[in-house]
Design a protein around this nucleic acid. Structure first.
Length: 327
DNA sequence: AATGAAGCCAACCGCAAAACG
DNA sequence: TCGTTTTGCGGTTGGCTTCAT
């Protein structure tokens, strides 16, 4: 496959367009249509390559382009579509009239992506992050713990370490549940994945927070690894295909995940089923809709659906629009 | 007020698919 | 069917603007 020559090979102009060039391009296209982009510059009297003309027209001069800030609805639509389509900006743009793929891409990179990262959400997977920086608070806590240990007698060490183990486990379970809820809110799921078993194992190993626990160095090591999450949690996260907090497993204490399924089911937030639309999605497809549920047959439906509850949204997407940081 | 950092976005680059002969 | 040309797309960059110190 050949490639068109670079614009500057024939001394063609590059860089910002001046009003005179814009005027010529608009006038020509209004009169003749763009036809062959390669031939257009010469015919329109522009010292530009066809590629540059096409870009200028589609991203700036086209009459139907909408200017100005993105609305909250547009942001939601972009989020939804990105969770399905990924970085398919042109595909996303087809569902946002008047917006160009370039504009959406810029908006994603400069606004939405940063906000997701700020919230600890991986912008690519739309799931909670488990990398080094998001676990920084735990690392800092451990650093402080070491400092405390250096200045405490050993009988106090035992108590402090017990609490550290407990805390690490709570955080880890919370992480597991949040990962799960972000994938699916299907309450019919049975705990059958590795992630499910992992969560249940950790939970069953926990006494009530107020219950005294004998210090077990092995437990401490495991819990610390979980809490750090640098090496262990990532692969584990990848192993969670569709986890829902098992409804029939009682919580051994008063702790409940921050976002239960009920919250999603009562929500009017527009949401898509990831598994239904992405042919390359690693996620399993959502279960068939029950009576009264509406099937979303294409992405456009998903964009306009006011209250689809056939599948749960990633928990954070609701939070996102309530978050003062995001608004 | 000056200056450096960060944010923002138009435009470019290079790859790949589609169209064409 | 194959090679060439054209078009479309996503990632990246450069420079202008705004913000913070």
């Amino acid at each position: 496959m050949g490639r068109s020559p670079s614009c500057d090979e024939n001394g063609l102009k590059k860089g910002p367009w001046i009003p005179e060039e814009d005027k010529r391009l608009v006038q020509y296209i209004q009169k003749h249509g763009h036809g062959s982009w390669r031939a257009l510059p010469k015919l329109a009297g522009l010292n530009r390559c066809g590629k540059s003309c096409r870009l200028r027209w589609t991203n700036y001069l086209r009459p139907d382009i909408k200017r100005g800030k993105f609305s909250t609805e547009e942001e939601q639509t972009i989020l939804n579509l990105h969770s399905i389509l990924g970085n398919k900006w042109s595909a996303i743009a087809t569902h946002l009239p008047g917006r160009t793929d370039n504009e959406i891409k810029n908006f994603w990179n400069t606004h939405i992506k940063k906000k997701l990262v700020h919230m600890g959400i991986d912008p690519m997977t739309h799931r909670p992050r488990t990398d080094f920086f998001t676990t920084m608070p735990e690392l800092m806590a451990l650093a402080n713990l070491k400092e405390v240990m250096d200045n405490q007698p050993w009988d106090e060490h035992a108590i402090i370490l017990q609490e550290a183990v407990q805390l690490a486990k709570y955080q880890y379970i919370q992480y597991l549940i949040q990962s799960a809820v972000s994938v699916t809110g299907n309450s019919n799921n049975t705990p059958n994945s590795i992630g499910d078993l992992e969560a249940i194992n950790v939970m069953s190993s926990l006494p009530s927070p107020r219950e005294t626990m004998v210090l077990d160095p092995f437990q401490l090591e495991n819990a610390t690894q979980c809490s750090l999450g640098v090496a262990d949690a990532q692969p584990l996260n990848d192993q969670i295909p569709a986890y829902a907090p098992p409804q029939d497993v009682p919580y051994p204490w008063d702790f409940m995940p921050p976002m239960s399924n009920e919250v999603h089911q009562n929500s009017s937030f527009t949401q898509l089923s990831q598994g239904d639309y992405s042919p390359t999605s690693p996620l399993p497809p959502s279960p068939p809709p029950t009576t009264g549920e509406r099937l979303i047959n294409d992405v456009a439906d998903a964009c306009s659906s006011p209250s689809y509850d056939g599948s749960s949204p990633p928990f954070w997407e609701e939070l996102l629009f309530d978050d003062p940081f995001f608004t």
